[in-house]
Simulated scan of single mutants.
Amino acid sequence: MRTNDELVPAEERPTEAVPPRMTRTRLGIFVATSVVYAAIVVGVLTTSWPVRFDWQVMLFRPYKQWPEIHTFLDYFVVLGQRGPTAVAVAAWLGWRTYKLRTMRPLLVLGTSLLLLNATVGAAKLGMGRLGPHYATAVGSNEMFAGGDIFPSGHTANAVVTWGVLAYLATTPRARRIASVSAALLALGVGMTTVYLGTHWMSDVTLGWTAGLLVLLALPWFEPAMARADVWLQEAWRRLRARRAVPALPVALPAAAGVSLGGPRGPADDDLPVREPVGAGSRATARVADGRPHLPPRPHTARSERTPVTPTGSRRPPHADRLPRTAPLGPAAGRGRAAA
């Protein structure tokens, strides 16, 4: 008999029962991406060929070359905006959290966004580059001028937010689809910012590398996320146990004139007190008002009662009646006639 795993295509079977680890391949990609990141930063700081290419694209003014797509791209660029994308992905991962009974999907999203804000935000404020619309001199790198566009936040956010879906995929097919979709979205968002003139081309390339570095670094944080998952689930169980309402005892109504036990208070002085009855005693228990209260006696089942024989009448005897077995005489006849 074929098992369920054999009936499922190989590319649709889950391949990772445990979170991803920092393998040598992943570490090599991380190092190579870090080198590219550093090369872009150095190229912009030294006003070399990345800056010259930035000015060529800026003076080309793509938004004037193809104005008919301007409105569409104004909406499309929202796919890289942090707020809307984080809400959309968090809603999906929240449903996955409920189905899988684990907080890991939301913890991965939260950790990635925290890393993104810390690294990209620090680079933006530290290098202070101005955007194309605020450039002061043709050919300058516009660094350390109080700006905050280097690297591109929209581009890095698109890489991280949509890339988390590929990172959490459990089948090869789902991982490929999510990876290609995230790459296309990040590519489109980055080029859209260049088209709109809000970013230099070097801002976008640095945003791609910054987002990829965050995704590649996530396996280093998996142990911490696993501990946080255990702690949160335990805290949730304790909270539910604390909120559980205990079953209250049902209050039974006390019989009139009978105390249910326990210490008597001032309000109980007017109530009658039952006198205790001995274990083998046939005496009746009396209450303070003088009315007798018979102790409980065993009840005889119907099958144990003495059967009634057909001999004799079950009616009680009467002084004016004669038994049916007595013969009828003249006096009896006169008396019946007179009646």
Rank of each mutant, 00 (worst) to 15 (best):
Q65L: 10
W66C: 04
P67C: 02
P67G: 08
P67D: 15
P67N: 07
E68C: 10
E68P: 11
I69W: 05
I69F: 08
H70Y: 03
H70S: 14
H70V: 05
T71S: 08
T71M: 13
T71Q: 09
T71I: 09
T71V: 00
F72K: 06
F72L: 15
F72D: 06
L73P: 06
L73H: 00
L73Y: 01
D74S: 07
Y75G: 09
Y75H: 13
F76L: 12
F76Y: 07
V77G: 01
V77R: 02
V77W: 00
V78Y: 04
V78K: 05
V78T: 09
L79A: 12
L79C: 00
L79S: 05
L79F: 04
L79T: 01
L79Q: 12
G80T: 07
G80F: 05
G80N: 05
Q81G: 06
Q81L: 13
R82S: 03
R82N: 09
R82Y: 08
R82G: 08
G83A: 11
G83N: 12
P84V: 14
P84S: 07
P84D: 07
P84H: 13
T85I: 11
T85P: 02
T85S: 05
T85W: 04
A86E: 07
A86Q: 12
V87Q: 00
V87F: 05
V87T: 13
A88D: 06
V89Q: 04
V89C: 01
V89K: 05
V89T: 09
A90R: 13
A90K: 09
A90V: 14
A91W: 03
A91C: 14
A91P: 09
L93G: 01
L93W: 09
L93E: 03
L93T: 03
G94F: 02
G94A: 10
G94L: 02
W95I: 06
R96Y: 15
T97E: 07
T97N: 03
T97Y: 06
Y98V: 08
Y98M: 03
Y98R: 01
Y98G: 08
K99Y: 03
K99S: 14
K99D: 14
L100Q: 14
R101T: 01
R101D: 13
R101F: 12
T102K: 07
T102N: 10
T102P: 06
